[in-house]
């Protein structure tokens, strides 16, 4: 199975780190992964994004034209990428920043008020992602990814990040029925 993601937002919202953590966790769970930061024409227009593929099989093209999952942190990202999401795919967006609910009938759309829930909005989104997709495990993120990505003086932020991830999970459990 292969999952293709686009994660997009403003620079500074932790978009690249979120993609990196997802890719790293999937790698540690035995998957093949690619992570590509916005680079080339995509990097213009105030959005920052990354493309992630996690796959059981070896990955051919690392380019994500049609994502299975889109995580959008702002309106420009919704405008730009929602239309590219594969039919039957998923979109998570930060509903504290995107006020009007985006509409597309052939994909599942989840609004998460990540910025209101915590100032580490990307971690809230990570929690929601884990709970909604089950593509990576919470333990992998907590035990392996966070200690690896938050090193060199940033260790003190780990508890705060874990808290935010858990809030993301809780929000999904409370607000969405499966």
């Amino acid at each position: 199975m292969s999952v293709k993601l686009i994660i997009s937002g403003f620079g500074g919202q932790g978009v690249l780190l979120l993609g990196d953590i997802i890719a790293y966790s999937a790698l540690k769970e035995g998957k093949n992964v690619t992570w590509v930061p916005s680079y080339g024409p995509e990097s213009r227009g105030g959005t920052c994004n990354c493309q992630v593929i996690c796959s059981e099989k070896s990955i051919g093209s690392p380019v994500v034209d049609e994502p299975d999952i889109l995580i959008a942190f702002n309106l420009p990202s919704v405008d730009k990428f929602m239309k590219t999401v594969k039919k039957g795919g998923i979109m998570l967006y930060d509903s504290s920043l995107v006020k009007e609910k985006p509409k597309r009938d052939d994909i599942k759309i989840y609004g998460i008020p990540a910025t209101e829930i915590s100032d580490v909005a990307n971690m809230v989104m990570l929690g929601a992602y884990i709970e909604l997709t089950k593509n990576i495990k919470l333990e992998t993120v907590v035990n392996l990814a966070l200690p690896e990505k938050l090193k060199g003086g940033k260790e003190k932020f780990i508890p705060k990040n874990i808290k935010a991830i858990k809030k993301g999970i809780e929000y999904v459990l409370k607000n969405f029925n499966f």
Partner: peptide
């Protein structure tokens, strides 16, 4: 190319 240079993989 720059794409490979910027990309992360295992």
């Amino acid at each position: 190319d720059g794409y490979l240079g910027q990309m992360k993989e295992g």
